[in-house]
């Protein structure tokens, strides 16, 4: 298992580097860019949901805080985009910290509802604080990110930036999961009481991972704002939070690579199924239910499990 890792990473990086040579079309690159942004969001949420076992139905709020901080500070106040990005991270982290202290004392349904309520309030703020956010018709004129005169304004340049960051965060997350902290997280996921008895400060750990995943979301939000050059509140509503949870679920909880897969599948699927646009919501709902009922370890892992189960049963019966 461990031995396969470097090959996997190497192959992935190579594929990412070669993909633009094959896909010469800006549309495909843009699609990949959105997959990259969603991957960052989903990896962060997966750390919280899959590893720490805490749900958030309001993650779109942190995504929105990142996007709006970047958007407002650059488009309205002309601040350097990188400073704005940093400000977005600080603000989202602070917000997550403040809301996390009381919220993470709650469990299960109560936490779900608290994060959802928080998400709704932040969304309403984006809509209502029109002088600041531009209100429901959105905020336009957000400039591109630039590094020493090199502006990330074309899909290809953005591809390089977004995927470099996504790759970095995938690696950081994988490292985190394998560390002592990761083991503590899993203990927390299995049983909070048991983790507590092992001397883990569960409250602090939960808060840490909550803030950490909010930072991922805020970074993704900043990238989103600078990619689209325009933001509107509708991108940060509850339905988007639910879509993120769906991505985590499809990719598989507690699976770093699964996050990539979940983000990819659910970003590409609606594009492929444009003919069935009326059914999109139905499909999302059905996926959530079917996967959680029958394949609670995620689509890929679940299908693999099923296959292995069949395989071993056949072997077993052959032997017996």
């Amino acid at each position: 298992m461990k031995g396969r890792r470097p090959a996997l990473w190497g192959g992935f990086v190579l594929a990412l580097a070669l993909l633009p040579l094959w896909l010469r079309n800006d549309y495909y690159l843009s699609l990949l860019n959105f997959i990259g942004i969603h991957t960052i969001l989903v990896v962060g949420l997966n750390l919280l949901m899959g590893y720490a076992g805490q749900i958030s139905l309001g993650h779109a709020a942190f995504f929105g805080v990142g996007a709006y901080t970047s958007g407002i500070l650059t488009a309205t106040y002309g601040l350097n985009p990188w400073l704005a990005l940093a400000a977005g991270l600080v603000l989202a982290g602070l917000l997550a910290f403040l809301i996390g202290i009381p919220a993470l004392k709650l469990r299960g349904y109560y936490l779900a509802m608290a994060t959802l309520g928080f998400g709704v309030i932040v969304y309403i703020f984006f809509v209502q604080a029109q002088r600041l956010t531009g209100g429901p018709s959105g905020l336009s004129g957000i400039p591109a990110l630039a590094l020493a005169g090199f502006a990330f304004h074309s899909p290809l340049r953005l591809y390089a930036l977004i995927w470099a960051l996504a790759l970095g965060l995938l690696a950081v997350s994988a490292g985190l999961v394998d560390s002592r902290l990761g083991r503590a997280l899993r203990a927390l996921h299995d049983s909070e009481a048991a983790a507590e008895s092992l001397g883990i400060n569960t409250q602090r750990l939960k808060l840490l991972i909550f803030v950490w995943s909010a930072l991922y979301a805020a970074l993704a939000g900043s990238l989103y704002a600078h990619t689209l050059n325009f933001i509107a509140p509708s991108s940060f509503d509850i339905m988007f939070s639910i879509k993120l949870v769906t991505m985590v679920v499809v990719g598989g909880m507690a699976s770093i690579w699964g996050s990539l897969l979940g983000a990819g599948v659910l970003t590409v699927l609606p594009e492929l199924l444009v003919v069935f646009h009326d059914f999109e919501v139905v499909i999302f709902g059905a996926i959530l239910m079917v996967v959680m009922i029958f394949l609670p370890r995620g689509l890929v892992r679940g299908l693999l499990d099923l296959w292995e189960y069949r395989h071993f049963r056949r072997e077993g019966s052959a032997r017996g």
């Binding site: 549309y27 843009s30 699609l31 959105f34 989103y224 689209l228 509107a232 991108s235 594009e271």
Partner: peptide, 8 residues
């Protein structure tokens, strides 16, 4: 009504 989709 989704801006990301409209853009894509």
């Amino acid at each position: 009504g989704d801006v990301t989709k409209a853009r894509l």
